[in-house]
């Protein structure tokens, strides 16, 4: 088994997230009628971090913030050996007429984002939905979905896995490329 390969180290990791935050500030200004929604579970870890950084970088002017669980919207529920465990959805607002920024850590097949877009429609008709991800594995898409704000683009073969690690959870903020899926848990 090959050792995990480091794609982004701690310094670049923080720079990348700050760059994404600046792009959001540039495009959304004072975040009027804008909401940032993290896709549970791993997207929500990233969105928590982005909200923290936005507060510091944009003098506490931040978008409305929610976390969305898409388990009940997945198209592979009955095709799995073991059902997925749902997480909680915390959305105390409607997205009717708002600009939505969906956040996930890795964009791979596009099925999660597809399910998230279906789920978000249950909270009203958004004016616009954009997508932000930290890692875009661009050659493995199942749907015509792309990210609007991208941390890093990674070209990988199907058998490899990308793992985003966080200092407060894993002890180090970094992005790794693995050859063994069990190591991603």
């Amino acid at each position: 088994m090959d050792a995990p390969r480091l794609i982004i180290n701690k310094e670049r990791f923080l720079l990348t997230i700050d760059r994404l935050c600046h792009e959001l500030i540039e495009n959304y200004g004072n975040f009027e009628d804008t909401c940032l929604i993290g896709i549970q579970d791993r997207g929500a870890i990233l969105s928590d971090f982005i909200m923290e950084r936005l507060k510091k970088l944009n003098k506490k002017v931040v978008p409305r913030y929610g976390k969305l669980d898409i388990t009940f919207y997945r198209d592979d529920y009955r095709h799995r050996e073991k059902p997925l465990k749902a997480s909680s959805t915390t959305m105390d607002f409607l997205v009717e007429g708002k600009r939505v920024i969906l956040v996930d850590d890795v964009l791979y097949s596009g099925r999660t984002v597809h399910a998230a877009m279906t789920a978000i429609q249950d909270f009203g008709r958004a004016d616009q939905i954009a997508f932000l991800c930290l890692v875009d594995r661009r050659f493995n898409r199942h749907f015509p979905i792309r990210s609007d704000y991208t941390g890093i683009v990674v070209d990988t073969v199907d058998q490899t896995y990308v793992k985003v690690e966080w200092e407060h959870i894993h002890g180090q903020s970094q992005i790794l490329l693995l050859n063994d899926k069990s190591l991603t848990v």
């Binding site: 669980d69 388990t71 009940f72 919207y73 009955r78 959805t89």
Partner: peptide
């Protein structure tokens, strides 16, 4: 645990999820 999640769903404006659309 699942009922807690579904209770949140049935208190949304659109109280429906597509989980069992093929059932």
């Amino acid at each position: 645990k699942a009922a807690t999640d579904f209770k949140e769903v049935i208190n949304r404006p659109i109280k429906k999820v597509p989980s069992l659309r093929d059932v």
